[in-house]
């Protein structure tokens, strides 16, 4: 039996007269890789902020890892990981210091932090870099490290906001290996991207246009439904009529 770890029901966010997110309803299962796509300004970031417990919805319902987005935002934050292209690590701390810092924030014990950091450094092959400042790492390594830090406390769900923007094609794929591994361990992945080939790596995808979820299905079914050769065409078909941009 599949077990939903994200459930939303007519989740809505208004800013004055502007409806940024309008009655979105969907479920994401444990261990699923869920692609959350949309044009610039479609409302993805606002929706994600509600799901992460950072923004209280205007109406509708949602539970994240079993916790309510209105009342249990602190529990939500403890049970999720978050990484974006913009905010990830502290650049003037070393690799090891970043791991220890985030481990501490998420309440891991010193012993857990030690075990986790050894594991992580081996897995990423960062043995030579542990004492280097993060600022000196190439972007691709930063992103991989940043993902690993976001799942350090073994969250139920990890939210990734355009994690691979500007990264070279080889590193982008290594990044997806990390995503697959985490999903295999049962971590639910909620990811946004502008790379349509990455949309194909997701189990299911939703496409948001002007605050509304216009389509939600597996990549295969979306392509069939839209008689499209690839996800790029599906996206174009749905988003070209968008009235909003960021």
């Amino acid at each position: 039996m599949s077990e939903a770890v994200i459930t939303t029901d007519k989740l809505t966010k208004r800013f004055g007269d502007f409806v940024a997110v309008s009655e979105i309803s969907f479920e994401v299962d444990k261990g699923e890789i869920f692609g959350f796509l949309g044009a610039n300004g479609a409302g993805k970031t606002t929706a994600m902020r509600m799901l992460c417990g950072l923004s209280i919805p205007s109406s509708g319902k949602a539970t994240i890892a079993g916790f309510d987005v209105y009342k249990q935002t602190e529990q939500i934050k403890k049970n999720i990981g978050y990484m974006s292209q913009k905010f990830s690590l502290y650049e003037d701390l070393t690799v090891l210091e970043n791991i220890r810092f985030f481990g501490g924030i998420y309440g891991l014990t010193d012993k857990q932090i030690k075990t986790k950091s050894d594991q992580l450094i081996n897995q990423l092959g960062l043995q030579q870099e542990v004492k280097k400042l993060v600022v000196s790492l190439p972007l691709g390594w930063k992103q991989k490290l940043s993902f690993s830090v976001a799942v350090l406390h073994e969250p139920k769900i990890v939210f990734l906001d355009e994690p691979t923007g500007g990264v070279d094609p080889v590193t982008r794929r290594q990044f997806w290996d990390l995503i697959y591994d985490a999903a295999d361990r049962g971590v639910t992945i909620f990811v946004t991207t502008h790379y349509m080939d990455e949309a194909e790596y997701c189990n299911r995808i939703s496409i948001m246009v002007d605050g509304v979820i216009k389509a939600l299905d597996t990549p295969r079914k979306l392509k069939d439904n839209f008689h499209a050769a690839n996800m790029d065409e599906v996206f174009y078909e749905l988003a070209r009529g968008a009235k909003r941009s960021e």
Partner: peptide, 10 residues
């Protein structure tokens, strides 16, 4: 076109 969605990129 960095960070721009596929429709606007086109």
């Amino acid at each position: 076109t960095t960070g721009v969605d596929p429709v606007s990129r086109k």
